[in-house]
Amino acid sequence: MTVPFHRLLAVETRKLFDTRSAVVLTAVLLCLTVAAIAGRGLYAGPDLRWLIWTAGIGYTTLLPVLGILTVTNEWSHRTALTTFALEPRRWRVIAAKVVPPALAAVVASLLAMLVAVPATALTSAVQHVPAHWNATPTTMAGWTAANVLFTLMGVALGTLLLNAPAAIVVHLASTGVWNAVAMLGSAGETLARWLDLNRTIAPLATGDWADISPARLAASAAVWIVIPLLLGTARVSRKEVK
């Protein structure tokens, strides 16, 4: 009997917050969002867009880790055998694992906006300065999309490596590596502009839509999301489960 895909989604969504590491990471995200927005409001004043972007500093680090753990927990907790016995078509399981972290990134982005709005108003009242309500829907949509892409990068790395520490190290080291590559000369700078996901996503995250290069964004997304996810799915489909 075929397991309906919506049931796989429900199960993978529950798994997303069903482990101690995921619960701790979610709690850290919530606390960091509130603390970062409050701290930035006291320091920089009531600027809604800047307060929302402040939450993104932690999001670009922690949301991909959540995506990594979504995949790797299946192997570290040795539940893969049960999962794939119930659904032998492993690609469907991987497909179901991609959606919950992406939705979590959207929810986290909305949470930052909901926290930033009253924080902006409160900061304005406390500091007796006018608030800047400059977070346009277009800008926030781009910022949310950037968070989703970073999260999918984590899912892809986790699927490819099937090892949480290794995937987290690759994720955290990628920015420094590409900065080093960019310093090697014109060829290195060109490679970084095309393949560094942090660089190609930056205009999307800041709402500078005129500076977005669809070709470079697609190239870096292919290198960091599409190709690792496809290779990882092929690896999972052939990997012996013990």
Rank of each mutant, 00 (worst) to 15 (best):
A215Q: 12
A219S: 11
T123L: 02
C31E: 08
T175K: 10
M1F: 08
H128L: 13
G41F: 00
A95V: 08
V223A: 11
G154C: 05
A112D: 12
P88N: 06
G188K: 02
Y59S: 15
R216M: 09
I68S: 01
G39Y: 00
H6P: 11
R235M: 02
W53H: 12
L217I: 14
L161Y: 02
W224C: 01
A202I: 02
N198Y: 09
G56V: 08
P203F: 01
R20Y: 06
R40N: 13
G41W: 00
W209Q: 08
L217R: 07
T120D: 04
G185N: 04
V170H: 00
A173K: 07
V71S: 10
R40M: 15
A131T: 09
L8W: 01
V71Q: 05
G45L: 01
D196V: 01
Q127P: 09
A182V: 06
A164L: 07
A80H: 08
T70N: 05
A146M: 03
T144I: 07
I37Y: 02
P203R: 03
L191Y: 12
G207D: 02
W194T: 09
M183L: 14
E189M: 10
A116N: 05
I225G: 00
G207A: 04
H128F: 07
L161G: 01
H128M: 10
L160Q: 03
L9V: 05
V34A: 14
T61A: 14
V117D: 04
M183K: 14
P4F: 06
H128G: 07
T2M: 10
N198L: 02
S237Y: 04
T54I: 12
L69M: 08
T2R: 10
V177P: 00
K242D: 12
